[in-house]
Nucleic acid binder design. Structure first.
Lengths: 221, 221
DNA sequence: GTCTATATACAGATAGAC
DNA sequence: GTCTATCTGTATATAGAC
């Protein structure tokens, strides 16, 4: 049996297999709906051996969530710093989010739905990360309103509405659906500009097609 | 002790207390995160007595979900039948949904997040109801596109995006927030029209302020 | 690093007295 | 309609041999 010896680059370590199969079960049946025996079976281990690869079930969940949110936050911050045009920045943040939530669906479902399974210091850490990411969205919307490009009475509410809309992609996206992934990203960023009533200086609607954006998967953490 | 004898109209029966406190616990800790003993304690009963008021935990969850979705579906269908203008119909459906999800937050959270706790015939029933409700949203969006009022490449995706956006309200709304409930409803319906690029015959943007809508709580099941 | 065996607590649900 | 007492299964986690 291989353990951690060098292998081909796409070989999965036991540790990675534990995390990946846990994501699948948590996404399907929920954190509390998945037992230690389920996790062990899914990873092809006994429960005792499973505990060699994780401290406990709670910490495994926290790691899954932090691994999902932290790269999103880093990318969004980088986008906001890089692009002075608020419309470009917001559209790019939306597209990156949609791209990530369609590409890594199950981890995003777990992250989005199992926060309430945590408590104490674990909950605090995940919430802080989540709030920080939401804060980037709010700053992006607020910047567009300050610049007179977006028009919305409640920037915080608008940011949350768009974030929740884009997060929902993880619950239904399929590569075999009517929209390809890059089309889906454009659809959501264009819709977000519409939601925010983005306008050009002449007052006409500013659309996604008017913008030059980096590829949605350009900002990989 | 009162049981089912007549009392003042706002007296809560034991049965209603069981359902209400179950909604609170399920919304807070999740279905699998809430034990029978938690439910009994929350309702001020022993576990045995709790079983006098419900068949089992699964059926209690199904009842909570059906009680939340069925009125939404009925209202949306009635709105769609009543209003020939697709912009009015869609905006009204959005406002009713937001109003319900802000007014009855906890039941909507449970309904939105615990579908995966069900299986078999229970899952089938709830999914059928949910799909039927989503279908009304899709028909509303499609009607607007056919009429040349909305402009979106993927009506099904747009409907789901708007539905998920509006559903998110249940996760954060507070009556003490920056927007009052009726303002929130208008904010979301206006945003939805923007997302769908609603246009007047002259090509200018069609906004919520251009429409005459019934009150968001007009369609009560 | 993997196993068998097990500790301890709690899950959902019921029996049967009053 | 409410209770005490309890059944049976499963939960998370660990001990200690190999």
């Amino acid at each position: 049996m291989r353990t951690q010896k060098a292998g081909k680059a796409n070989d999965e370590t036991t540790r990675q297999r534990v995390v990946r199969s846990a994501i699948e079960r948590f996404a399907d049946k929920g954190f509390h709906g998945t037992g230690i025996r389920d996790l062990a079976e899914a990873a092809g281990l006994t429960t005792s051996t499973l505990y060699h690869y994780m401290a406990n079930k709670d910490d495994l969940l926290v790691e899954i969530m932090e691994s999902a949110i932290a790269p999103l936050k880093r990318a969004a911050e980088q986008i906001l710093e890089t692009h002075p045009d608020p419309a470009v920045a917001l559209a790019s943040i939306v597209e990156h989010h949609v791209w990530a939530h369609a590409s890594d669906r199950l981890a995003c479902i777990v992250t989005d739905t199992e926060v309430r399974a945590l408590s104490g210091e674990r909950l605090d850490r995940v919430m802080a990360l989540r709030d920080a990411y939401e804060g980037v969205w709010k700053r992006a919307v607020a910047a567009g309103i300050s610049a007179g490009i977006f028009h919305a009475d409640a920037p915080g509410v608008a940011a949350r509405a768009l974030l929740q809309m884009a997060t929902g992609v993880s619950h239904w996206f399929s590569p075999s659906g009517s929209l390809k992934l890059d089309e889906l990203c454009r659809f959501y960023s264009d819709g977000a500009l519409g939601f925010l009533k983005a306008r050009k200086p002449d007052g006409s609607a500013l659309e996604r097609a008017d913008l030059e954006l980096p590829a949605p998967n350009h900002y990989l953490g």
